[in-house]
Amino acid sequence: MQLSDFSYHLPEELIAHYPLAERSASRLLHLDAQGQFHDQHFTDLLDLLDTGDVLILNDTKVMKARLKGKRASGGAIEVLVERLTSPNTAYCHIKASNAPKAGVEIFIGPDLIPAKVQGRHENLFIVEFSQPVLEVLEQYGQLPIPPYFNREAEAIDTERYQTVFHDPNKLASVAAPTASLHFDQKLLKQLQDKGIQEHFVTLHVGAGTFLPVRVDNIENHVMHSEWCEVPASTVDAILAAKSRGNKVIAVGTTATRALESAAQAHGGKLAAWSGDTQIFIYPGYDFKVVDRLITNFHLPESTLLMLVSALSNRDNILNAYQHAVAQRYRFFSYGDAMLIDRLQHA
């Protein structure tokens, strides 16, 4: 399939630059198992999900991963921490007028905290900080909100670009699992009261989630690596749900990739697993775990649009997106949501 097969026109004004006043106030476009779509509200999930179904949520937490700094010469530099490799060392993206070489010292924040570029790891820089990385991020970092917001992070993002259920000990993502941003505590409690179970996986989202696909034939695309974990308790809940005929609803593409990676690692059978994943899901993929997906609207020609097209199909997704544009849905991280059912083939 060609990259251009996943293009669509999106008016700039439909990109949501700020969240709604209430998390669960978003609209929801339901794309059903026959490929038909229905305009709903996010709180309609209470009617759209069944007692005994299992919601799978990603409990990662977003780091204040973006740091401003300078070189010894005074030149401006921006560091985006991608992944911690030790308390004081991280793989990073660095924006500068010239790529820094190994041994170059840089200085972070207004207090000029020293850090040293140690070398490269693939397309990332290995940076050793003079203080623990998480402490530096907490003091000087900004939330790495998506580039299409066209603004700096603001106070509202500190709360709203995090899920209400994140695990504070899993502070390692550089982007939010944005489908989960629609859930507030009230809606989660209502779902629990209906008997809809919540279980967690972890996938630490990398900055590669924002990188464009740079090949024409999508099968030649190589995904960035991200760490994930699917615990035994979540696996047990999923297998029990499937045995009684209930559905597994992944909240977000990250939860989907974690679940399908765990199955892929065990020959197609879901089992507990943790490790790095580079799974690339596009049309033709046979889902092993996920029955339904709650997700946001995704960028044209993105791997995320390809993933959702694999669950339904490309034509159904693009038709639904065309409808969403016509109906003035809000797009991307702070936008509205979709519920996509796995397509039933005749």
Rank of each mutant, 00 (worst) to 15 (best):
N220G: 05
S233Y: 11
K247T: 13
M223N: 05
F210I: 00
P212V: 00
D216Y: 02
L211P: 05
A237T: 12
S233V: 13
R214N: 01
V213Y: 02
A237P: 05
C228T: 08
G245D: 12
N220K: 04
G245T: 06
L211H: 14
N220S: 04
N220F: 03
E226D: 15
A250D: 15
L239A: 06
E226M: 04
I238T: 09
V222E: 09
G245W: 15
S243D: 15
I238S: 05
S233E: 15
S243Q: 13
V251L: 07
S225M: 04
V251K: 11
S233L: 07
H224N: 05
N217D: 14
S233M: 06
V235L: 01
T234Y: 09
S225Q: 13
D216Q: 01
E219Y: 05
V222H: 10
P231Q: 05
I249Y: 06
I218S: 01
V230H: 09
A240F: 10
V215F: 08
V248G: 02
S225V: 00
T234W: 10
S243F: 09
V248M: 03
M223S: 06
V235Y: 10
G245V: 03
S225C: 01
D236S: 11
V248D: 12
H221E: 00
R214H: 06
V230E: 11
G245F: 10
V222Y: 03
A232G: 07
V230Q: 03
A232P: 11
M223R: 03
V230L: 07
V230S: 07
V215E: 07
V215C: 06
D236K: 10
V222M: 11
P212R: 03
A232Q: 14
A250N: 13
K242C: 03
N246M: 03
N220C: 01
C228F: 14
A240R: 07
S233D: 15
A250T: 08
R244W: 00
G252I: 06
E229A: 03
I218M: 00
V230T: 15
R214V: 00
L211R: 14
P212M: 00
D216S: 02
D216C: 00
V222W: 08
L239S: 08
K247W: 09
V213H: 06
V215M: 14
I249T: 09
D236Y: 14
N220Q: 14
K247L: 12
V222F: 07
V213K: 11
G252Y: 10
A232C: 05
A240L: 11
R214A: 02
L211C: 04
A237M: 09
V215G: 10
N220D: 15
T234G: 06
C228H: 12
A250F: 13
N217G: 05
L239I: 08
R244M: 12
L211K: 14
A250I: 10
G252K: 01
V235K: 01
P212L: 06
F210D: 06
H224E: 12
V213L: 04
D216M: 00
F210G: 01
S225P: 08
I218F: 01
L211N: 13
V230P: 09
I249A: 04
P212F: 03
I218C: 02
V222A: 08
W227T: 04
V248Y: 12
K247Q: 12
V251N: 02
A241G: 05
I238C: 03
A237Y: 12
R244E: 11
A240Q: 11
N246Y: 11
I218K: 04
D216V: 00
A240K: 08
